[in-house]
């Protein structure tokens, strides 16, 4: 076995009792060198107790703070404990831990600070409902224009970041629906982003945090954040 960087896999989990144990087991199988942190974001179900029993680093948010703030708690922990790589792997089973070594390997190539697992870089059979696909294409267009590089899956939360990214996110991370905004933020902070094609599962359990009626709000909020973000000073990473 080669030397792996000190890696923390961060699992944001809100009411994921059905899938969490499975996700953690898969991560242990495929990324045995990594530590695992479950961020229980004020779940009302058994997510928190399951996280405690699994013997992972279990951070219990005292109430529901939203995925952005929950992830940031993970980055904060990673920053303080000297992790060199942080991977985000959602707790709903959509992200396939088999892909994590590919994300980390791509990061270790050294030409990027953050590697995003994209569902759309090449066809891997992931089916997105047409309206959502349309929304993602719009966001991808806007973000590609902002960052001046091709981004195909700006909503993907399946990512691996370097120490620079860990430190940056511990300081500054968007609140809710953070992925697209953070991609733009990274680019403006001088962090290099790279996408690799990954296979994702259909959701394993729980329900998407984005229901159809929230999609309109999602788009407006994210686009507003992106455009206002352009007029903001971003601290260099």
């Amino acid at each position: 076995m080669r030397d792996y960087p000190k890696t923390l896999v961060i699992i944001p989990a809100y009411n994921e009792e059905e899938s969490l144990a499975h996700v953690v087991a898969l991560i242990r199988e495929h990324v045995p060198w990594a530590d695992i942190a479950v961020i229980d974001d004020g779940s009302q179900d058994a997510t928190g107790r399951i996280a405690d029993r699994l013997g992972v680093i279990a951070l219990h948010m005292p109430f529901n703070v939203g995925i952005g703030a929950a992830m940031q708690a993970g980055f904060l922990y990673a920053a303080r404990h000297g992790y060199q790589v942080a991977v985000q792997n959602d707790g709903d089973g959509q992200h396939a831990p088999q892909e994590i070594p590919h994300l980390v390997a791509a990061l270790l190539e050294g030409d990027a600070d953050i590697v995003v697992g994209s569902r759309y870089l090449e066809p891997r059979g992931y089916i997105t409902p047409p309206m959502r696909r349309f929304g993602i294409i719009v966001l991808a267009g806007v973000i590609s224009a902002i960052t001046r590089r091709r981004v195909t899956d700006p909503t993907s939360g399946f990512r691996a970041g370097s120490r620079r990214v860990i430190e940056f996110c511990a300081r500054l991370y968007p609140h809710d629906y953070p992925e697209p905004e953070s991609v733009a933020l990274f680019a403006r902070a001088g962090l290099r982003l790279k996408e690799i094609a990954v296979t994702m599962n259909p959701r394993y359990g729980g329900q998407s945090s984005i229901t159809w009626w929230r999609s309109a709000y999602y788009m407006v909020k994210v686009l507003l954040a992106l455009f206002i973000g352009l007029l903001r000073k971003v601290p260099a990473a």
């Binding site: 951070l59 005292p62 922990y77």
Partner: peptide, 10 residues
């Protein structure tokens, strides 16, 4: 505060 509480508690 919530983030600090979660980390400290752990």
């Amino acid at each position: 505060l919530a983030q600090e509480v979660a980390i400290l508690q752990y």
